[in-house]
Design a protein around this nucleic acid. Structure first.
Lengths: 161, 161
DNA sequence: AGTTGGTGGTTCATATTCGAACAACCCATA
DNA sequence: TATGGGTTGTTCGAATATGAACCACCAACT
């Protein structure tokens, strides 16, 4: 609690740049996906995770963690995708509580079709602009943040008990 | 259009890490701000930009660009902040179309009060985990992306005419 | 078997987001 | 000063995102 130091100029610069870049990226990605195939970025991430999963299927809970969205948010989106025939729901055979979201062939096609444009945006605005060093650096930076956030509970750093 | 190459493994790793990290960060920031002072991250960014501006005031349009949000989105949020007494609206003296959003003293106090916790999160999960090199790298990476996105219009890379 | 604590998904109310359409205003030029 | 194009901010409707409340089910222990 005593360490309420603000950010230094360079730290603030990095943080501000990150914030702007992330908002702008989201904006451009959304725009492109919508124009190309009527998908949302959220839709795309869900379809992509399912596509990469064994059997093209995942438990709702696992999927929610993978795309980093709330349970209710995922329920909503999967419902939407189901209505469009891109995903199906099955009850989990090993656990009656569970629901499996399964990518349909139509969903796989839609994903394939929308991928080139999406990748083009990600490349044009980010990936292709980075040197190999910067790419490695970004991976390391983001991985550090992820492990920090997925292990720590929340709130300010606590003392050992 | 011909270059529809997917991402290499390391590129995809970097992108996936970025996506997860950004979603998680947003989640944690939101949670902390809400708990500390009942502010949204969107609120915080608006108040912060106003606080840094000369005269603590900005045209709606400039503010919208600074926080990277749609015009209608900003109208909504400023309305909300005005209702809570943290921001005031004034018509711009030099341009009758314009509206100035002005940070009130109450808004400044609220910003100050919520800042330590917010910074603590940003530090704990990101900034404090980075080496000086990584911090510089992040600034450079994000700056590249920003300039790419704010100059280029959109869509796939166009040929010279 | 009966109980108890915990997990998985959905439902619900609320708060935001965005883009399109709109009205008011600025300015350069005829 | 009239006109036309461009800018500014708001309004409106539709789509989401979230947390809290809730029910169904699992697993361990008595």
């Amino acid at each position: 609690m005593a360490d309420t130091r603000w950010l230094t100029e360079s730290e603030l610069g990095a943080w501000a740049a990150y914030l702007s870049a992330s908002h702008l990226l989201e904006r451009h990605i959304e725009e492109r996906l919508k124009a190309d195939s009527g998908l949302t970025h959220a839709h795309y991430e869900i379809l992509a995770k399912l596509s990469a999963a064994p059997g093209r299927r995942l438990r709702m809970n696992d999927l929610a963690r993978k795309v980093v969205v709330s349970k209710s948010g995922l329920t909503y989106q999967v419902g939407r995708l189901e209505k469009r025939g891109l995903v199906e729901r099955t009850t989990c055979p090993s656990d009656d509580r569970g629901v499996l979201a399964v990518l349909t062939d139509e969903g796989a096609r839609r994903l394939e079709r929308s991928t080139p444009g999406h990748v083009a945006v990600v490349r044009a605005f980010l990936i292709d602009r980075l040197t190999p060093d910067e790419l490695r650096s970004m991976t390391r930076i983001m991985s550090k943040a992820i492990t920090a956030m997925t292990s720590a509970p929340a709130g300010p750093p606590l003392r050992a008990p």
